[in-house]
């Protein structure tokens, strides 16, 4: 998943707040995933319109790290999720 890829959640997968446990979860058929704080900020920006690079731009303004590091980490995270079928790249 490179900077130009546009990630989205496929049908049946959604990011949801689990208020009872005070956390967010990605719910997929038969499976669930719990993002850490930074991963949650990434997933909240996955809308099927923003590219990986666009997400990196937004987060680089909020986090204290070089933009290229942020983009590389985001791409790696989303690639891992894509292998699990939790996101797809458009």
């Amino acid at each position: 998943m490179d900077g130009a890829a546009v990630p989205r959640f496929p049908r049946g997968v959604r990011l949801r707040e689990d208020a009872a446990r005070g956390r967010w979860v990605v719910l997929a058929p038969e499976r669930a995933f719990v993002p850490d704080d930074v991963a949650l900020e990434v997933l909240k920006l996955v809308d099927g319109e923003r590219s990986v690079g666009g997400i990196a731009d937004l987060l680089a303004a909020r986090f204290d790290a070089p933009r290229e590091v942020i983009e590389a980490d985001i791409a790696e995270m989303l690639r891992d999720l894509a292998e699990r079928g939790v996101v797809v790249a458009g």
Binding site: V25, E30, F33, V38, L43, L59, D64, D73, M77, V86
Partner: peptide, 14 residues
Amino acid sequence: MAWIKPRVAEVSLA
């Protein structure tokens, strides 16, 4: 805010 490599953990629904 500090950037920490983002991670997503799979949890067992069971």
